[in-house]
């Protein structure tokens, strides 16, 4: 599998290691939450980066402040109708303040990709021969957003009331030109 990240298909250097398998010494790996909770101390001591793969029914809050020690968290879309990972992603970003790579794995449809990025997912796993044109096009299908999410995009309410938004965002100037230009 390859990764769609930063607008291009990239090689994937990470490997998920099952709970019973040996952890390779110098390779970036993700492990289950269960294994992280059991072996966190030794995993943190490795030289290579480590990440956690969350199952859909696992609460991200279980990671607590550990999120700051992880280089990657994976959330799963076992089938595209299962949207739990959208909420898990938002909890990781907004509540736990996770700043590292947040990856969507499983069934990643182009029609959901925009929502994934809005919820703070910044890489997704795709088959290596997959054309990414549709995914990149999907990101441009909308240019205005009603609700705040985990991507920092300005909401319609903020654009309608720049003074309010300035106050909320600590005085950073709010740019209102983009949508107006788009709708011209």
């Amino acid at each position: 599998m390859a990764l769609l990240q930063h607008g291009a298909l990239q090689p994937n250097n990470w490997r998920f290691v099952g709970d019973d398998a040996a952890i390779p010494v110098d390779e970036p790996v993700t492990v289950s939450l269960k294994r992280w909770q059991a072996e966190g101390e030794s995993l943190r001591g490795r030289n290579a980066p480590v990440g956690v793969r969350l199952k859909n029914d696992e609460a991200p809050q279980a990671l607590g402040q550990d999120v700051h020690r992880l280089s990657l968290i994976e959330v799963e879309f076992p089938k595209f109708t299962d949207g739990r990972a959208f909420s898990q992603a938002r909890i990781l970003r907004d509540k736990l303040g996770y700043k590292g790579e947040l990856r969507g794995i499983g069934t990643i449809l182009r029609d959901q990709y925009l929502y994934m990025t809005r919820c703070g997912i910044d890489s997704v796993e795709l088959p290596e021969d997959k054309s990414i044109d549709g995914y990149l096009a999907a990101l441009k299908e909308f240019s205005a957003w009603y609700q705040p999410a985990s991507d920092g995009r300005l909401t319609v309410i903020e654009l309608r009331h720049p003074a309010n938004a300035n106050a909320r965002r600590g005085g950073a100037p709010v740019v209102t030109a983009s949508v107006a230009a788009h709708s011209a």
Binding site: F80, T81, D82, G83, F86, S87, R90, Q112, L114, Y115, M116, R118, C119, F142, W145, Y146, Q147, A149, V156
Partner: peptide, 13 residues
């Protein structure tokens, strides 16, 4: 209506 339209988190409930 506006808040719920294309809510990225709640479109696959």
């Amino acid at each position: 209506r506006q808040w719920s339209t294309f809510h990225p988190e709640f479109s696959y409930l």
